[in-house]
């Protein structure tokens, strides 16, 4: 296919899509007033709900179903896969790691993103400064894995051999001896988490910075006139004003963290006690050929997200009550 043909096909796709949306809007527009709300809502939601049911709900339900079957997906084995997850000592480590990831990553990424957003807000070169933190988000996974190799790589202390990992070079400069960062349990988990924080802080910073800019200036001015200092401003003005955005960021990064597996996979392969549920799910499904256990691990991911969902429901209720 020639490049022109490719772009033409893309044009058709967009046209078809625009036509579909046009029809929806046309239909929706025929209903008005409070009574038509239901009809308009259905029209607005229909395309979304259709593609989601086919693309995510159906595979999700299928996964739940498969989780009660054996490796080949033939024999029904009840909850055996789940009991494997909760009894096998390796799998317990996996669970523990996942919890650690989810407890650390969202808060650090959000905290750093928020701090940076406040610090560079209205500063000179603000867009440039923000682009620097945003950069990691734009890097493909292949790129990120090499980047961190040049940070964590280990070379022994031996004449004629130079460090190629920055972290060990710093340690050597400080007079220490190089460490196997990715090997030493349990700290190796932290070194992996750092990579995720590095990537996600850019997301937090972008969203939060925009939220900060939406804080009404009169509120800030009033607080300033009341003699509120920097910390007070942060605590009593900034954070309450951007609370909804904070919830969004924490939730999004939390879910992304639960699902993360490529960092673990490319850097340690899940070895040395660093595996997480999403990585284990991937290994079991696509490498160990254990469809049932893989499905059960995916279901476990669904379950782990429940606290995050509940928290969001509470926030939703709170905002309705405003």
């Amino acid at each position: 296919m020639s490049n022109t043909a490719k772009f033409l096909e893309m044009g058709y796709a967009i046209l078809i899509f625009v036509a579909i949306v046009g029809v929806i809007l046309f239909i929706a527009n025929r209903f008005s007033g409070r009574k038509g709300d239901r009809a308009v809502a259905s029209a607005f939601l229909a395309p979304t709900l259709i593609v989601l049911s086919v693309g995510l709900v159906y595979p999700g339900l299928r996964t739940v179903y498969e989780s009660f079957f054996d490796a080949a997906g033939k024999a029904f084995i009840g909850l055996d896969n789940y009991s494997t997850i909760f009894t096998d000592s390796d799998e317990i480590t996996v669970l523990r790691n996942t919890v650690v990831w989810v407890l650390i990553t969202p808060f650090f990424a959000t905290g750093i993103g928020l701090l940076y957003a406040i610090l560079v807000d209205k500063a000179r070169l603000e867009s440039f400064a923000k682009a620097l933190i945003f950069l990691p988000m734009a890097i493909s996974f292949v790129g990120a894995s090499i980047i961190w190799k040049f940070i964590y790589e280990y070379r022994p202390e031996q004449s004629g051999i130079k460090q190629i990992g920055l972290l060990n070079q710093v340690v050597v400069w400080l007079g220490g001896s190089p460490q196997q960062w990715l090997l030493n349990k349990p700290w190796n988990n932290v070194f992996l988490i750092v990579i995720m924080i590095w990537i996600q802080a850019g997301f937090a910073m972008t969203v939060l910075s925009a939220a900060i800019k939406a804080i009404p200036e009169d509120i800030v001015e009033a607080a300033r006139l009341d003699g509120v200092k920097a910390w007070g401003m942060f605590r009593f003005v900034t954070v309450p004003s951007i609370r909804p955005a904070l919830v969004v960021v924490l939730t999004t990064i939390g879910i992304a963290t639960l699902k993360v597996f490529d960092i673990v996979r490319t850097v340690t392969g899940g070895q040395f006690g660093t595996s997480v549920v999403a990585n284990e799910f991937y290994s079991q499904s696509f490498r160990a050929d254990n469809q049932g256990l893989g499905a059960a691990l995916a279901v476990l991911l669904f379950l782990l997200v429940i606290p995050i969902v509940l928290y969001n429901i509470r926030q939703l209720r709170a905002s309705e009550g405003r």
Binding site: Y154, R155, P156, Q158, I161, Q180, L182, L183, Q271
Partner: peptide, 11 residues
Amino acid sequence: GGLGNVQSIAS
């Protein structure tokens, strides 16, 4: 040889 101790084989 040239790479470290036994553990370094893993990394």
